[in-house]
């Protein structure tokens, strides 16, 4: 049977939100076989999208409009990553919707 879930982790302020809701460290979330964008996923979980700067998909930073597919390992990163890593990792660009992290079939 094909996998239908992604794993999701929440960092920083989102981690506190997860604890408030009594959710486990690693969430398993059902997603459509055709995929779901990061924004859609955040909205479906009622996460504060405006506080999310970017996401990791399989350990690589992607913009929020990145299409997530079953089997992906995902983490949401809120605004507030200190250090040059916000740039070195691409979070700064992801948060601003720049095209440095090319999309995968979404606009």
């Amino acid at each position: 049977m094909a996998e239908s879930t992604i794993t999701l982790r929440l960092f920083g302020a989102l981690h506190a939100l997860r604890r408030e809701r009594g959710l486990p460290t690693v969430l398993k979330v059902d997603v459509p076989e055709s995929g779901i964008t990061g924004i859609e996923l955040a909205e479906s979980l009622e996460l504060p999208v405006e506080q999310i700067e970017g996401l990791f998909c399989n350990h690589t930073v992607r913009p929020l409009r990145w299409m997530l597919r079953p089997g992906d390992h995902v983490a949401f990163v809120p605004l507030g990553t200190p250090g040059p890593h916000r740039f070195f990792l691409g979070l700064y660009g992801a948060g601003r919707g720049s095209d440095v992290n090319s999309t995968n079939g979404t606009s």
Binding site: F11, H59, A75, V77, T81, P82, G83, H85, R86, L89
Partner: peptide, 25 residues
């Protein structure tokens, strides 16, 4: 600012641990 006004006062510099770990670095 989100970093200096919120994230750092709340979690300190170690807020990076999960992020750098997730990046595989």
């Amino acid at each position: 600012h989100a970093v200096s006004g919120t994230a750092l006062p709340t979690y300190g510099t170690n807020v990076l641990a999960n992020i750098i770990n997730e990046a595989g670095g």
